[in-house]
């Protein structure tokens, strides 16, 4: 469901980068950061990525997901705390509402690992099979 759409968005973004590279490199890994306080389920994302990249420029690329926990900052206590997702978001000490989220909202493509074939970069029309 929405992981399918997220993956579509991911592929479009990576494709923009890929098409901006003159030598259209082979992408071997896509590194993502996915926060705990997002609507994305990493397992579903892995699955959707595998299915949707088949036969595309990302065929065989590995999706590496780093999960980040939800961490909030309580101004009254001047302290970080970890809200219990699904149960309680207010500061457990003073009950102040969760206002500043330090971590957990990330949905970021950190980096790509890719390789270029040093020969094909000068002979792009020759497609090795």
């Amino acid at each position: 469901m929405h992981e399918t759409d997220m993956t579509k968005a991911l592929i479009v973004t990576v494709q923009d980068w890929w098409e901006s590279q003159p030598d259209r490199p082979h992408i071997s890994q896509v590194h993502l950061t996915v926060g705990q306080f997002t609507c994305v389920e990493p397992m579903s994302l892995q699955f959707a990525f595998e299915v949707q990249t088949r036969g595309t420029f990302l065929d065989g690329a590995e999706l590496v997901i780093r999960e980040t926990p939800l961490i909030a900052f309580c101004h009254r206590c001047q302290k970080e705390y970890r809200p219990e997702v699904g149960i309680q978001y207010a500061c457990p000490v003073c009950q102040s509402p969760m206002e500043d989220i330090l971590s957990g909202r990330e949905l970021k493509i950190d980096r790509l690992e890719y390789s270029t074939d040093s020969h094909s970069s000068t002979a792009q029309s020759v497609h090795p099979t």
Binding site: M6, P25, S28, V40, D117, S118
Partner: peptide
Amino acid sequence: MHQTFDAALGINLLHANQ
């Protein structure tokens, strides 16, 4: 001959939607 590179993107996953 293969060389491996890293491209730091730091792009939001929802960049295109944004």
